[in-house]
Amino acid sequence: MVGGVAAGLLALALTPLAHAERADRDKPMNIEADTGRYEDQSQVTTFTGRVVVTKGTIVMRGARLEVRQDAAGNQSGTMFAEPGKRAFFRQKREGVDEYIEGEGETIEYDGKSDIVRFVRRAEMRRLAGATVQDEVMGSLIVYNNVTEVYTVDAGARASGAPSAAPGGRVRAILAPRNSGAGAAPAATAPAAGASAPLRSSTTLPPASGTPR
């Protein structure tokens, strides 16, 4: 079922059957690009031209990447798309053959808080194998890998920025709980490794701690 959500902000959560790969934050960040430049004063490394990032199961692609690392070794990166295009992010969920992936004109990944922000024309999907199970679209999507809760903000009317969903409204496609690969029957408790659908949540992910 596809429908627009009138509220400017939609909070959803994945059921806690599986989590994003916890080890990803401790893996090295591997980067391929046409050029790279390090600025000692700002402690920022900038990569440009067909940038590809891998960090454990995380994959990011875009036109320009700014990387920062704090004294504790926590890495954060902001990926920018080419004009008129969107950057890409993908990460495996732990214990199941499922992935979270999405696009935005800008994608911000904070390794310390394990939060991803898809900014402008934002879209995020949950895939079971290669099959899309759930999909949300808006102007801003903030996804917390630790709690597996995310918020979707239409934002277009207030900011004037374009939204991935038409009409400046949040849009979502949510798979029924008893459909999709590995889903458990409605009358029984979900089995380990089952596909986890989306559910409503009153818990919002923290708004602070994301790279700017």
Rank of each mutant, 00 (worst) to 15 (best):
S113P: 05
P206D: 11
E39V: 09
M60E: 03
M137W: 12
E101V: 00
G3D: 13
A20L: 13
A186V: 13
E94F: 13
T54H: 12
T210N: 11
D24M: 10
V132D: 05
G180D: 04
F47V: 02
G4F: 14
R61C: 00
G95F: 06
Y99S: 08
A128I: 02
V136H: 02
A7Y: 10
F118Y: 04
M29W: 02
D70G: 01
G193M: 06
R86Y: 01
A156E: 12
S195V: 04
A63I: 03
K92W: 04
R37V: 08
T78L: 12
D134N: 15
E103Y: 14
R125A: 09
P197S: 06
E98P: 07
F88N: 08
A63W: 07
S179A: 12
E103R: 12
P211C: 09
V59E: 12
A191H: 14
R37M: 11
A161Y: 11
K92T: 13
R121G: 00
A175V: 10
R37I: 04
D24P: 09
L12Q: 14
T151L: 06
D40G: 14
A186I: 13
R171N: 08
A128V: 07
P83F: 05
Q41S: 15
T151G: 02
A186M: 10
L65A: 05
P162E: 10
T45N: 03
E98V: 07
E123M: 14
G193A: 06
V136L: 14
L9I: 12
V67M: 04
S42E: 13
L17P: 01
S201G: 05
E135D: 15
V52F: 04
L198P: 03
S201K: 04
S76F: 07
R126V: 15
G49S: 01
Q91V: 10
A161M: 13
N74C: 04
G160H: 03
F47Q: 01
G138A: 00
D34V: 10
L14K: 11
V152F: 00
A183L: 01
P83N: 05
M79L: 09
A81R: 04
S200R: 12
T46V: 15
D153A: 13
P176Y: 03
K92Q: 15
R121M: 08
E32C: 02
T57D: 07
Q43W: 05
P28N: 04
T188A: 11
E82N: 11
S201Y: 03
M137F: 08
A72E: 15
R50D: 15
T46E: 10
S201C: 06
A71T: 12
V51R: 01
T106P: 01
V96L: 06
S139A: 08
